[in-house]
Simulated assay, not measured.
Amino acid sequence: RDGQLTGLLVGGVDPADLPDPALAEAALASAGFVVSLEMFPSAVTEWADVVLPVAAAAEKAGSYLDWEGRVRSFDATLHGTGQLPDGRVLQGLADEMDVDLRLPTPEAARAELAALGAAHRPADGSSQPPVGLDVPPPPSPATDGPGEIAVLASWRQLLDVGTLQRDEPELAGTARPSVARLGVDAAARLGLVDGDRLTVSGATGSVTLPVRVTPMPDHVVWLPMRSPGSEVRTDLGTGPGGVVRLSAGSEL
Rank of each mutant, 00 (worst) to 15 (best):
P139Y: 10
S127T: 13
G162I: 02
A172V: 09
V151P: 00
E148W: 03
D134L: 09
L171S: 11
G132M: 09
D124G: 12
A188E: 15
L133E: 11
G147A: 05
S140V: 04
A119W: 06
A119M: 08
V184D: 14
A186I: 01
L164H: 07
D167T: 12
P129H: 09
R166C: 07
D134E: 10
Q128Y: 02
L171Q: 11
A172D: 09
D124M: 11
L182D: 00
P130C: 04
R181F: 05
G183K: 09
T163K: 06
P141M: 07
A186V: 09
P130T: 05
D124F: 13
P130N: 05
T143E: 14
G125S: 07
Q157P: 06
S126I: 01
P130H: 08
S127K: 03
Q128F: 00
A188P: 00
T174P: 05
P138R: 06
A119Q: 13
V184A: 13
R121C: 13
L133K: 05
A187L: 03
L152D: 02
I149Y: 00
V161Q: 12
P136K: 10
G125Y: 03
P136A: 13
D144F: 00
P122N: 01
P139H: 07
L182S: 00
L158N: 09
P169A: 14
T143F: 03
V131Y: 08
S126F: 03
T174N: 13
G173K: 03
G132H: 13
R176W: 13
Q157G: 05
G191I: 12
P139G: 03
G147C: 06
A175M: 15
L133Q: 09
G145F: 01
D185F: 09
G173S: 15
R181C: 07
P146W: 01
L171C: 04
D160V: 06
A115K: 09
D160P: 05
A142P: 06
D134R: 09
D144H: 10
D160G: 15
W155A: 12
V161I: 08
P141Q: 02
R181T: 00
Q157K: 06
R156Y: 08
T143C: 00
P139V: 05
D124S: 12
P129F: 06
S126W: 03
P138T: 03
L158Y: 02
A123T: 10
